[in-house]
Design a protein around this nucleic acid. Sequence first.
DNA 1: CCATATGATTGGTGACGCCAACGTTGGCGT
DNA 2: ACGCCAACGTTGGCGTCACCAATCATATGG
Lengths: 146, 146
Amino acid sequence: MVEIPARLAGKPSWLLTQLAVHAHRLASECFAEVGARGHHFRVMAVLEEFGAVSQAELGRRSNMDRSDVVAAVNELAEQGFVEREQDPRDRRRNLVTLTGAGSRHLRRVDRALGEVQDDLLAPLPDEDRQTLTRLLTQLLTHHQRA
Amino acid sequence: MVEIPARLAGKPSWLLTQLAVHAHRLASECFAEVGARGHHFRVMAVLEEFGAVSQAELGRRSNMDRSDVVAAVNELAEQGFVEREQDPRDRRRNLVTLTGAGSRHLRRVDRALGEVQDDLLAPLPDEDRQTLTRLLTQLLTHHQRA
DNA sequence: CCATATGATTGGTGACGCCAACGTTGGCGT
DNA sequence: ACGCCAACGTTGGCGTCACCAATCATATGG
């Protein structure tokens, strides 16, 4: 193993970003196996929980830029996982809906992603996993506001 | 505030990567203020703790790709913060050393980065901060091996 | 009716992690 | 001594993600 300088290893921001790299790598491999990508999962997760929403809403709820939502919805529509139609009550909006195939796809990805969580937290006992989740949630909520 | 779907908010990998985005943003602002960048800090941190090392070694200890080390060392050398010379004992290697100005620069960046940690962990009491650091360190060490 | 705001889309930027290829050099086995 | 393999530095490129600016269409409130 290689030793990492204390100036890095001692900083929570370092631990966080480096661990996020691993998390991201694990998730990406998982996405690749089922032919999806991070942005796709995020969009589908919103659609499944909140029904048909506009793309702007999609971006807000999945923490994505509007322009990135466009690309994600394009790709998902090509694969038949979502449908995009103009909102009759507000013709600026596109109402995006999850198709049956999309719903099945989402469940498939979600299952695989569950195993990723296990790999990610592998060395921690259940209690520590809960503590970690709680602390991270607390921090994230705090930074979402500001 | 906007509600995030449970399929996202419940996953440690999501919490981790999203929080890493905030950490990264805070750090980037900090770097920008002193005219530095993430890669620069990493390289300088290694040099300060381990002395003159080769670029390959630099990459291993700061978790960077060799090619990215090249760019970082180029930029740091232009600013006079590091010096690059051929290792007389192994002419494949470049020995990189931190200059006096580099050392001062590192300390400046490090100090600013300290405040970032505080912003990042703002809502947590001291005890929780230590717990979080411990858990993250544990996970990171685990994933470094594999 | 006009000013303002919101939505979708396009195009571009930068940080970061990563990979493939190449030429140079060192070390090792035979 | 030779050839092979490994390590190093360098260049160029790729994919993901976050983000920004500009544009056009459409609602909405004064």
